[in-house]
Nucleic acid binder design. Structure first.
Length: 191
DNA sequence: AGGAAGATCTACT
DNA sequence: GTAGATCTTCCTA
């Protein structure tokens, strides 16, 4: 398994979001591995994006991470749920990719225990759900996801699928662009 | 203190 | 399928 290089994240946010589909998210807890295929993402930009955290400037660490170097994990709390993003943008710009859904591969029993549900489909088909399954919280903020010894990182995956796109979900002030990407026909994409 | 935020669970029309 | 309560930080007053 090859870890995606730092350069992967130093490109336009929407491109990175699209390319992250099919890649494998790896979470290491006590030397145990939990993995899942990324099946749904969204791109968020900096101050010019009304849906971005940076637009309202809150919380502060989010803005700082959005504008800092690509390849870092960015986690924040909304409505009582942690959401997992990866900082990704071209040089001197700002942006991050929100991971909305993954398909569980390994460590399913651990996820069930974390989530207290039996159905595999309910495990990770939403941004707040997958963070609970993978035990992702604020203390992973700033973690590099291109390093193999990180507690969380992303590796190469498959490429045989069709990608779909739509407007972003749950956003009160959205842009005109379609910034949500997902694998067509995958059962783990959120509704 | 109060309010708002990329959501989720539950309980129904 | 939708509607409502509840969720947990962080910012502003």
């Amino acid at each position: 398994m090859k870890v995606l290089p730092r350069k992967f994240y130093e490109r336009d946010t929407a491109k990175v979001a699209k390319d992250l589909l099919g890649k494998i998210l790896v979470r290491k807890i006590n030397s145990k591995l939990i993995t899942g295929k990324i099946v749904e993402t969204e791109a968020y930009y900096g101050k010019e994006d009304p849906a971005s955290r940076a637009y309202l400037g809150r919380p502060k660490y989010c803005v700082e991470l959005l504008y800092s170097e690509p390849g870092k994990a960015l986690i924040y709390m909304v409505h009582g749920n942690w959401l997992f993003n990866v900082v990704a943008h071209e040089k001197s710009k700002a942006g991050a990719v929100l991971i909305r859904a993954i398909e569980p591969l390994n460590g399913i029993e651990i996820m069930k225990k974390n989530r207290k549900v039996e159905k595999i489909f309910e495990l990770t088909n939403g941004p707040g759900k997958l963070t609970k399954s993978l035990k992702i919280t604020k203390n992973l903020n700033g973690t590099f996801v291109f390093k193999k010894d990180s507690p969380i990182f992303i590796v190469e995956g498959e490429k045989n699928f069709e990608v779909g796109s739509s407007h972003r979900i749950g956003v009160t002030r959205d842009l005109k662009k379609k910034l949500r990407f997902f694998i067509k026909g995958n059962k783990f994409v959120s509704r």
